[in-house]
């Protein structure tokens, strides 16, 4: 067991956990931040995507000991008190069905759009191919990303 001080959504949190524990389970079971979802545990589905210093990472493949002082952002903190444009686009396009994968989809899309504000369809397909949606809302996710991109001016 080791002690970690983690910056999550601009707040410091203490966690006493095994060093190898994936960030996913620290968020969900220790900090009770359950917006980040478990889907596969192998980095194959993207449901657990969070930001580490604004980069999208799979929390299930990120041991807590590797986080250090990097700032963690989860779906709960993405809007930072309001609503993030990507979340708004998800509402405008009525994307979610069951909604389980959408935290990961939104975290992936928001990190991606921050780096590439005007992606092509091929860019979108390539980057978002790492996030599975079994309700298969892919067409609406695509539209929501394009909507955000065109609002980027």
């Amino acid at each position: 067991m080791a002690h970690y001080e983690l910056s999550v959504n601009n707040k410091m949190h203490d966690a006493d956990v095994e060093p190898e524990t994936p960030l996913l389970w620290v968020l969900r079971d220790t900090l009770n931040l359950t917006g980040t979802k478990y889907g596969c545990g192998l980095g194959l589905c993207g449901a657990c995507t969070v930001h580490l210093d604004r980069q999208a990472v799979r929390a299930c493949q990120t041991p807590v000991k590797s986080v250090g002082t990097k700032k963690i952002t989860t779906i709960e903190g993405l809007g930072a008190g309001g609503i993030h444009p990507v979340q708004q686009a998800w509402i405008d396009e009525q994307v979610p069905q069951c909604g389980y994968c959408q935290s990961g989809q939104i975290m992936q899309a928001s990190a991606f759009l921050a780096q590439n504000p005007h992606p092509s369809i091929d860019d979108i397909n390539a980057v978002m191919a790492g996030n599975i949606c079994r309700c298969a809302t892919y067409q609406r996710i695509r539209r929501a990303i394009q909507r955000t991109a065109s609002a980027n001016g």
């Binding site: 359950t34 917006g35 980040t36 779906i75 709960e76 909604g99």
Partner: peptide, 8 residues
Amino acid sequence: DVPDKVNG
């Protein structure tokens, strides 16, 4: 249910 499903 959409608002709650986009903010976790």
